[in-house]
Design a protein around this nucleic acid. Structure first.
Length: 248
DNA sequence: GGAAGATGACAAG
DNA sequence: TTGTCCTCTTCCC
């Protein structure tokens, strides 16, 4: 695989692995590990604004700030804006993975370990869901949407949830996130709640999916019609429906 | 043309 | 809690 850094910031490391055989590419939570021959691993974390575009070959001249380009005869991948792009070894990867909680996308994930953390915590469930050492991979969109789908108020302390409630939430995450991987979109609205089914005019989303509350502050809840609320929690915008999602 | 914001995470105070 | 980093898009003049 050809490895380069048109923007330059990864250039020194790219030169070290240019031409190496790619053995595997796998994710753990929000981390991507591209494993190359010789125990060399490219570790990528997109952060808030990073993007990885994977397109068919041939690769055109790079446009914009392409920090990493991976390329073979079939396809190329351009990385922009990532918070992490570094060359690491197996021990560092093990360290990163070891700090992560359970990833709903992995078949071997153990929901009981997640429940053990949540059921003992006084922290809001909306906070726990974003904690990568509890649940790996869930971000701001899935947090808002999964809580809405289960009618759980985001500020409820983790320990006030019932076990059955959590297990339902977990299996829903497994399904929703799996679908997100397959489709490349985050669609969380059940068929019976789509604007068409509710007799409302269709709407356009700017993040590539249909959602209940995420970034819909001030708009009407798709289910009950009351205004979607928002509040900044730990520096992130939180969204929920005050009527559908009870605190108690 | 410029500001604001965005699916994140960390350090500093 | 605030500031910082990374890049691009959207919206407003």
């Amino acid at each position: 695989m050809r490895v380069s850094s048109p923007q330059g910031r990864f250039a020194a490391d790219a030169a070290l692995v240019d031409g190496a055989v790619c053995i595997a590419a796998e994710s753990a939570g929000k981390h991507l590990f591209v494993e190359l021959a010789g125990d060399r691993i490219v570790h990528v974390h997109l952060g808030l604004i990073g993007k990885l575009d994977v397109l068919p070959a041939p690769a055109p001249p790079p446009v914009g700030e392409v920090r990493l380009r991976l390329q073979n005869d079939n396809a190329y991948a351009d990385l922009r804006g990532a918070t992490q792009c570094e060359l690491i070894g197996p021990s560092r990867r093990a360290e990163i993975v070891g700090q992560l909680g359970e990833d709903p996308l992995r078949p071997d994930a153990d929901p009981d370990r997640v429940w053990a953390r949540i059921s003992r915590s006084h922290r809001p469930i909306g906070d726990l869901l974003m904690d990568q050492s509890v649940l790996a991979g869930v971000g701001n969109v899935y947090r808002a949407e999964i809580l809405f789908r289960h009618r759980i108020h985001p500020l409820r302390p983790g320990r006030t949830l019932r076990r059955g409630q959590f297990l339902a939430l977990w299996s829903d995450l497994v399904e929703l996130m799996g679908e997100g991987v397959r489709t490349g979109r985050i669609d969380t609205v059940r068929p019976e709640h789509t604007p068409e089914a509710m007799g409302r005019p269709p709407r356009k989303d700017d993040h590539g999916g249909e959602v209940y509350v995420y970034r819909r502050a001030g708009m009407a809840c798709l289910v009950c019609g009351s205004k979607v609320r928002t509040e900044v929690l730990a520096g992130r915008n939180l969204f929920w429906c005050g009527r559908c999602q009870r605190r108690g």
